[in-house]
Nucleic acid binder design. Structure first.
Lengths: 129, 129
DNA sequence: GCCGATTTTGACAACGGTTTTCATTTTGCC
DNA sequence: GGCAAAATGAAAACCGTTGTCAAAATCGGC
């Protein structure tokens, strides 16, 4: 479970934003790698389990992955046009989620937070379109 | 696009938490309604478009729906066991998301925030299990 | 290096939720 | 009633993902 995982991880590290499994598979094949789609999924799964990549679901239900830059809990600011991603720490949000959970007596509180927007580059590109 | 939509909406209104499309379909059929799965999906789609129901995706990619109680922007605190849901307003989070977006020059910032936990009832039920 | 045992791999099939298709039914209107 | 437009639903198509299983790579031990 390691050579392929490393290869997949390498692809992610040299990518800017989030990429889908199929996307990664296509790129690796284009690069000449002899890898199967199944293996890509398995690699992504284990990388995700190990916390070495972030995974989130797009609005249309597709899972997308990205190499983490930091291994501490964090969230993402994602450009909805180009996929460019910034990792953001949000201590305020963490506290808020905990507080909300506690207010209603919920335990084992987790949360998902993603912020989407249009990045400066894409905004100016769109403006001149 | 209205009689079926109303029926679906009615089911959602008398439901506690989030329900999946198939779930709704099964229940309606059990109630004796002559409705097709396709129509349920179409109804949910249009209700969602009109902002009359909330829709979110579970971790395993399934879409679930719920009748909104308020039509202003809000988030959800969802019990991961029983699906019981509390609508929560989070002005802090709104501000935070805006601030984060602005910090990196992002425009048209939107955000998705969901908080999951175990509700008091389920926690005690699990404790005595 | 060689051999068997174990793990990893990948082509392909299966799966499950969602969407599309398209023929039929219902609805609205005259 | 009669007709056109909209809604419906059964079944097929879709698509990302997961399971299957036999072939291939890897790892000791000798």
């Amino acid at each position: 479970m390691s050579k392929s995982s490393d290869a997949v991880h390498a692809i992610l590290r040299q990518s800017e934003g989030f990429r889908s499994a199929q996307d990664i598979f296509t790129k690796m094949r284009a690069d000449g790698a002899k890898i199967g789609l199944t293996t890509v999924y398995r690699a992504l799964q284990s990388l995700s389990d190990d916390g070495r990549v972030d995974m989130l679901r797009t609005d249309d239900g597709e899972s997308v992955y990205r190499a983490c830059e930091s291994d501490v809990h964090h969230h993402h600011l994602v450009c909805r046009r180009c996929g460019h991603t910034v990792e953001v720490a949000g201590p305020d949000v963490e506290r808020w989620a905990e507080a909300v959970g506690a207010e209603y007596g919920f335990t084992e509180v987790t949360h998902t937070v993603e912020v989407f927007g249009t990045c400066p580059d894409c905004a100016s590109a769109a403006g001149s379109r």
